[in-house]
Design a protein around this nucleic acid. Structure first.
Lengths: 203, 203
DNA sequence: GAACTCATGTAAGGGGTTACATGATTAA
DNA sequence: TTAATCATGTAACCCCTTACATGAGTTC
């Protein structure tokens, strides 16, 4: 139920902020929530239908001129109750696929020049991501003085955390870049752990 | 291929350090690699068989007295080549399910006392996790002076990054705890975004 | 005697990824 | 005229999760 709940609750969560269409839900996942809130994008429409069947959301069709019509969904009272119940359940530890971590772990197997290219590229990506988050933060800041202040305060709090996570990634990429030249040149020796058992702990 | 590759490469990666049994692979995933290197644990044995069929690993049975026999797997030359090719491919951005982030984002919907309990619990979990990582680091430190120094250096580098990630989580939980009492008492007012559209950006 | 470690599995069902499909409008 | 935005989908296959199964030895 863990995975299953994730998408449902993500959608209910977005709808709790304001009613929106499947397209908008998808857009938010793509633009801001990824990569730290992964969601199966093609499952959004089917899940919305399922949520409606289950009575957790209400849908109404909005006729638009010059654009395709859309179906705007909003939380039902039951949906809001479900969401709140989920929020009250214990917070699970994050689970992730962190390729950077994985690849640094084994980087001694790789030609240092190729490693350098990949890590530089990763640094660029994370910096870009961090930049986006900071822009969003700047844009959201003024809303603290508007209505819905409480809501915004928590959103900014989680955004801040996300920014710290992004900064950690940037710092990690930089640290790896610093280490690479030091190990360069020594690494051209014959690969050490060829078949033989390495004596150290592998944590 | 992204997800599928993840488990295969995780296993090949562990076997690149030293030959080991399926049980040991599983143990490493459980003890140290989770939660930031999630793996489908029940798929380990089937995947090992698949890897053997594909010629990427070699297996030999080790007869043990007083314990069940085990099959120890090691990388074949082909397996090492596959692993290196994967290492040379661009580093994907991490993708994760971060329930803490998700729940802080929507915390205004939750009774502050319940929120407090959950966040405290999360803080305890992350601190425990951080403690484990620091212990592993202390244990690995001496291996820097042994053989396989290069290998250990990269393992420690990725471990350091993982520690920074864990510290970020701990700090995030603490920051949330600091914010909760400030918002307490104000939150008992009627829920603000009931049906009506909120005017702010939802990033 | 209970609980844990070592050691290896199976089976069903649900969830997610990849790839494909359509079609109108607007900005570069 | 090419690309992007708005808007909503389908289908197949693969992967993963959950739950279960076994059994000997060791530690408390």
């Amino acid at each position: 139920m863990a995975r299953k709940a994730a998408l449902k609750m993500s959608i209910l969560g977005l709808l709790s902020i304001r009613p929106m269409s499947g397209y908008e839900v998808r857009k938010h996942f793509l633009r801001a929530l990824s990569p730290f809130w992964a969601a199966p994008l093609t499952q959004i429409y089917p899940t919305l239908r399922a949520l409606k069947r289950a009575g957790l959301i209400k849908g109404r069709t909005v006729v638009q001129a010059g654009r395709p019509n859309k179906r705007v969904f909003s939380l039902s009272r039951q949906g809001r109750r479900e969401l709140t119940r989920w929020l009250a359940s214990p917070i699970a530890m994050p689970s992730m696929h962190h390729e950077f971590l994985h690849k640094v772990f084994l980087m001694n197997l790789l030609d240092p020049e190729k490693a350098l290219v990949n890590v530089k590229d990763y640094l660029r990506c994370t910096e870009h991501w961090l930049g986006n988050l900071l822009t969003i933060q700047r844009k959201m800041q003024p809303a603290l003085k508007g209505p819905f202040r409480e809501t915004v305060e928590y959103q900014l709090l989680s955004l801040e955390h996300l920014i710290h996570i992004a900064q950690t990634e940037v710092a990690g990429a930089k640290a790896t870049l610093d280490h690479l030249p030091r190990l360069h040149g020594q690494a051209t020796k014959a690969p050490p752990s060829r078949g033989a058992a390495a004596p150290f702990l592998t944590w």
